[in-house]
Amino acid sequence: MTKVTMTVNGKAASGEVEGRTLLVSFLRETLGMTGTHVGCDTSQCGACVVHVDGKAVKSCAMLALEAEGAEVATIEGQAAADGTLNTIQAAFQEHHGLQCGFCTPGMVMSAAALLKDNPKPSEAEIRHYLEGNLCRCTGYHNIVKAIMAASGQDVSAIAAE
């Protein structure tokens, strides 16, 4: 076992891990932060997306020890300290961008990464950016709409809510 130390949502976090411990296992099992999910084993579904040093990564395809010293951001750190949802989270609720909620943490984290690079993405850009995030419930309609709305675009003309 090796000690790994990183910053998670602004707080120091450390734990003993094996070489093979995935970042997502460190978050879920060592830290008990179960908001980040695992939906596949071929790094395609994106339920496990977190930010490492400001970049979206699949925490199921990264070793915990690779995140030594890194700044990690997860879904648990997205809302304000008093629980107020951030703009993206609020837009997902407002526009019904989630159903079962399992892909949602990854969707929100990917959306945050997208909007950081591209503050007003087009519909096509959003759909393309979500290539690595699978949702089985929504048919993506309201996810795309929510991200457009979160970026401040008028979505009232988009087909039914």
Partner: peptide, 9 residues
Amino acid sequence: IGDPAVRNR
């Protein structure tokens, strides 16, 4: 290549 998260790694 891959998707945005894959490209970051």
